[in-house]
Design a protein around this nucleic acid. Structure first.
Lengths: 212, 212
DNA sequence: GCTCCGATTGAACACGTGTATAGCCTGGTG
DNA sequence: CACCAGGCTATACACGTGTTCAATCGGAGC
């Protein structure tokens, strides 16, 4: 019984890493090779390829949710970067990136999770006064998160080219430090020198203003 | 002779649309069906599937470069949105989005182009005083562009699900208006209430700066 | 020692893919 | 009318894919 759970986990770990390296389209047989088992056994355990993907999704989501609480940061990209530093988690981070790249329902869910986290973080920052208040905190958290994750996904190698898991920590660290300064500047000093544009748009469409 | 060029263009147009709808992995036979020709003919004209992709890349890049000059905006996502409004260009925009999603060299080149444009636009804004100066204008243009495009790519349907070209104009307009306010707020009012973080980082690593 | 049961395998199947090739049809020309 | 060049099609081939299935292996229980 525990034997079953063990091979399950073994296969899932191999799948996670292979999918991270080659993308979510990596053939079953390659995953099987990595795990040192036959392709049929994977089917025997998971039933179908999509079910294996779903299991990877669930696992990645669970890890992300669990580890997220240990690190407090509003920037989801920074969070993934930090997670990737622990080489144990590099495959998970790679898989998450690939999943975000491929789209689909889990990508939405992951983004949603990150958005919620960012919202909470930003609200806390507002409370302590380090973060400026927003007219629409939820929307702000969402655009901040989607921009950070999206920019990260754009850096990924193509669907064809492999993602080097061993190099992932350095890769993400380099990217983080590369964008740190401009992003920080952007968050500290307003890009636009005056508020006329914002005010114009605000005056134009106050759809749900005033009285509830 | 002109006949050949005509079918070439016909096939290429069909390929562009099909790849936009189904993603860059859409099978040749489906493109052939759309174009009303046989799969062999596509091979006869383009030699190989990858060559067809390359031709689509070249065409999309050319259109993007040509039409870009007609619209002045620093936001590449807004530019694509505006382009998509002309239904003639919807397939090209869809293809560009799919290409950005799939990664690869053209994605890099497209992003690079958009970055250059954004840099020029921002520089002009600096000149007229509407855009605040930056410590590293090139890097700022790059993160702004990658964030805008990346966030847009994250909104795309998954690799499997189709992208509705007829709905693309409305789809992109809705997205634009949805993020307009939070983005504008972000660009008008600094997210961080003070500059201590930025200054700390600046003090920590001034690799090519004059003052210690 | 024997039996039995589940994990595991290797071969096979059905299908979809890109590509090569032999032939067909059309339209222009003597 | 005969002919023929070439854009174009239909078929075929080789290959890779997910999945199935009968056979095999290994060990726990009597």
């Amino acid at each position: 019984m525990s034997d079953r759970g063990r091979t399950d986990e073994h296969i899932l770990r191999a799948a996670l890493a292979r999918f991270a390296v080659e993308g979510l389209r990596a053939p079953l047989r390659r995953v099987a090779e990595d795990a040192g088992v036959s392709a049929g056994l994977i089917i025997h355990h998971f039933g179908t390829r999509d079910a294996l993907l779903a299991a990877c999704d669930a696992h990645a989501l669970e890890i992300a949710r669990r580890e997220k609480t240990k690190v407090v940061t509003g920037d989801s990209a920074a969070l993934l970067t930090q997670l990737a530093q622990a080489e144990e988690y590099a495959p998970v981070v790679g898989y998450v990136l690939r999943r975000l790249q491929a789209g689909g329902p889990l990508a939405q869910q992951l983004v949603g999770d990150f958005v919620d986290d960012a919202a909470a973080y930003l609200a806390a920052g507002e409370e302590t006064g380090t973060i400026s208040p927003s007219r629409d905190p939820k929307a702000r958290a969402q655009v901040l998160t989607e921009m950070a994750l999206g920019a990260l996904v754009l850096q990924l190698p193509g669907d064809a080219d492999p993602l080097d898991l061993e190099d992932l920590p350095r890769w993400m660290r380099d990217y983080s430090t590369k964008i740190l300064l401009p992003v920080l500047e952007l968050y500290t000093q307003p890009l636009l020198t005056d508020a006329t544009l914002l005010e114009a748009v605000l005056a134009e469409q106050p759809p749900e203003g005033g009285t509830p």
